[in-house]
Design a protein around this nucleic acid. Structure first.
Lengths: 210, 210
DNA sequence: ATCCTAGGCGAACGCCCGTTCACGGACGTG
DNA sequence: CACGTCCGTGAACGGGCGTTCGCCTAGGAT
């Protein structure tokens, strides 16, 4: 156990944080396997051996990045869905809005999280997959509740879950902060391409939608 | 120029075909960078040096795989859209059905095509990106035609294009031949999660839909 | 003033990588 | 039977990889 317990961000930039940031950048641009620890060391201005004062291994570094971003995604989504109230449609929309924003704002980390699963060993992979399943479940349950409440009409809830997640996840691939559409516009327009939401869009009263 | 010109499949299994098939398998399961030519040689029962009687380089092998699958995807889609007739909605649905089927049946190759772009050098990458842009354009033009014809109501055509492609591309990630739903069911149900198609589903007359 | 420790340095380790090449056998063609 | 071509063999190449380690110094605690 070398690496210290420095989690995300405290106050300034600890060496560990600078390493994590540079790793996110490199893993996103070049890919995990194509990135060497020597490149990473260069990027933070260290010798390659010194990295090991802050990380346990290259693979643990990838695991930490993926775990952190997934945990934060889940936490933010739980918060937003809770704030959206009880109505399933409002909860689904909160999920989608949060997902779109998160995948846009944290596109490097989320992209890594969706691409580099194969770089993890069994223990890490199982953990990440479990987190991802939990995230997927949050949407599926909201959709199911919508069907049960008669607010949504969905031929197959599992398929709808996969479709919605694909749309949101893909934001990390194409979104650019200086792109044609602002983040607010994307958050407003993109969910309209999700079928189950379309026919139900009008009946949602303004009081339940924040 | 070593490698012979053997394209896809002639009659039986030439060494080159066996190499391509094994490479698809390994690149899909382990990733391009994580796959070594020694693994590949083992998989086809050759020594590593012998591979070079059939390929130019590891990277050219990846490029060939990606190019082939994209070209076939475009050709099949063009054929199906042409067979669907002139009405934009029918053409959009043909695109989606073909895309879903192709990404299900060729999920290994298409997965590689969507994940390993970074493994290509500039020349190969430009070519692949150009093919992908062409594919995307086929859908966008059909959607635009639908809007112009008043058959589709789409707030932002580019966003809708990205969303639809994300849904279809993602099929390669989760589809299993022995899964809960048959390919026919997925082809029928998944497009219904694509918003713009929903309200317009009934008015399509039976004569124009094959 | 002394000690302790965190952490950077830089060399080294063993390993595996993609690629090359001289060699030799198999085999269809004249 | 001789010849040329195809192609598999197996060793070798240089280089980059992740990781380890002994050394040294700076700075806070006592």
């Amino acid at each position: 156990m070398t690496a210290n317990t420095n989690g995300t961000d405290g106050a300034a930039s600890t060496p560990r944080q600078r390493i994590l940031e540079a790793a996110v950048d490199l893993f996103h641009r070049e890919g995990y396997y194509a990135t060497s620890l020597r490149q990473l060391a260069d990027a933070v201005g260290l010798q390659v051996g010194s990295l090991y004062n802050h990380i346990d291994s290259k693979e643990a570094l990838l695991g930490d990045i993926m775990r952190t971003v997934l945990v934060e995604l889940i936490e933010e989504t739980e918060r937003e869905m809770a704030a959206a109230g009880e109505r399933p449609v409002a909860r689904v929309r909160a999920f989608l809005r949060t997902s779109i924003r998160f995948h846009a704002e944290r596109r490097k980390e989320t992209f890594i999280g969706n691409t580099e699963l194969r770089g993890l060993d069994d223990a890490n992979r199982r953990e990440i997959v479990a987190l991802r399943d939990r995230y997927e479940l949050m949407l599926r349950e909201a959709l199911e509740a919508g069907v049960t409440a008669g607010e949504l009409e969905i031929p197959d809830v599992q398929l709808a879950t996969l479709a919605a997640l694909a749309i949101c996840t893909n934001v990390a691939v194409w979104y650019r902060p200086d792109g044609r559409l602002s983040l607010e516009e994307v958050q407003e327009l993109l969910p309209r391409t999700f079928g189950p939401l379309c026919p139900v869009l009008p009946p949602l009263t303004a009081t339940n939608e924040r």
